[in-house]
Design a protein around this nucleic acid. Structure first.
Lengths: 247, 247
DNA sequence: GTGGCGTAATTGTCTATACATAACTATGCG
DNA sequence: CGCATAGTTATGTATAGACAATTACGCCAC
């Protein structure tokens, strides 16, 4: 159960404590070390990497600041239960938000197909034309009322496990968050008037203002998924909270 | 010109390097030290605070990580030219965004009045009823086209200088960012259909979908300002980019 | 058993010291 | 004057050692 670190994974670039930090971060971000897993103690790491404890401490402290690990005296360091996802991101897991509000959440798959990316899709998604891709669309409900439409592309080369996955009940967004590590994300937020088809699916008046969040994620520059999430403006709002680092 | 630190400002709470970090961050966040100002060298700070250079270094490195200061070898440490405002925040300074797009930016004050907060305002704003408040509304233009309406409340107890300030040309948002330090911010983002009055002011069709950003900022739990920024959905979109701390 | 207590493991912080690195400054040579 | 070179200063990183704080765990008395 003890996580194995290949000791000489130090990449030789930059300061030693940075190399150690990356060496520890890598298996966490790739999901090799499960949340809650114990990380070798500072003392063990000094022997593993041949560095002093201060240097190890600097690396681990940086990881703790970043929220990747949790450190507890006498117990040791552990992979954080819920790695990053900074404040602003949290709301995009609408299922969690609905559950927090005490409403019954349901996801309904409207369409799913697998195809090779045509040039237009490739450009939107950032993959090479011909790449194997899954396209999904679905509807999220809270207490029976439709609250969000989702259209999504998944790059099967980055997340091959998604090919066999059945998304007819559980939403693909949550699954991807849990199973595929991402390193970068981009969001575009805009407002649009609902078209006829959208209005019918969301059971709202045509031309109702809707919030659209377009989300793209990458893992080390490889596109993982593209998603367009559309909600009636009145139904939900996004919340972001920020604090200055000092006070 | 050398920034004066009252040496015994250490508050006695927590680790010494944290106290030093706060002692240096405070005048920066309060605006007492102008951007670009030189911070005493590590060596000087060791004498000022009576701590070792490693401890000083730890404090300053943390401030550099947070983006509050910039450090350059041989030259020293300096207050960052553009303190924090993390990625996601940047868009809320619409003037800067318009300028970056190479368009001509203009702000037009539509209304300004000063009054004592009634119960409804007090609840919305989080101040005590009777608090002296300024209410403003204005319109932002890019190349002559209206692109955003702004409605704003400013707490005069937190920002008394705003009382005498003339906002008829330069927008209050930018001025506040520059002159009043904030510690916390909250944003609500939603989509609404433009009403008749809104449509007239923005020169768009009634019922056009608009993006509304409601922003509230506090300085140490004291409300500073509340703002509602409304833009046609097609005109502008918000962009947020995130990266995981490691890769 | 069980409650209290000491012990040891582990992280948190601090110091003193050392050398590396970057970059401005001054010097010297032609 | 121009250019190369050495010097100086400040930050960047690393080490070894020390002590503090926290807390699980086992031991012992009852």
């Amino acid at each position: 159960m003890s996580p194995r670190l290949s000791p000489p994974v130090l990449d030789g670039t930059g300061a030693i404590y940075q190399q150690i930090r990356r060496a520890v971060a890598r298996p966490i971000l790739r999901g090799d070390w499960a949340p809650g897993a114990k990380i070798p103690s500072e003392h063990e790491l000094t022997e593993l990497f041949g560095a002093s404890r201060m240097t190890i401490n600097k690396a681990l402290s940086a990881l703790a600041d970043a929220g990747l690990i949790v450190r507890r005296r006498r117990l040791g360091s552990f992979v954080a239960e819920r790695p990053p996802e900074r404040a602003v991101m949290e709301i995009w897991d609408i299922g969690a938000e609905v559950a927090r509000a005490g409403e019954a959440y349901a996801f309904e798959l409207l369409e799913a197909r697998r195809f090779d990316a045509d040039p237009a899709t490739a450009r939107l998604f950032g993959v090479k034309p011909g790449t194997s891709v899954v396209e999904l669309s679905g509807r999220h409900r809270a207490d029976g009322t439709p609250i969000q439409l989702e259209r999504r592309l998944i790059n099967l080369e980055a997340a091959p496990a998604a090919a066999g996955k059945d998304f007819s009940v559980s939403p693909p967004g949550r699954w991807l968050l849990d199973h595929v590590a991402w390193s970068d994300a981009e969001h575009l937020i805009r407002a649009v008037n609902a078209g006829d088809e959208t209005a019918r699916l969301l059971e709202i008046e045509p031309r109702t203002a809707c919030l659209v969040v377009e989300r793209r994620t990458w893992s080390d520059r490889v596109p993982i998924t593209w998603a367009e999430l559309l909600s009636p403006g009145a139904a939900r709002q996004l919340v972001g909270r920020f604090s200055q680092p000092d006070a």
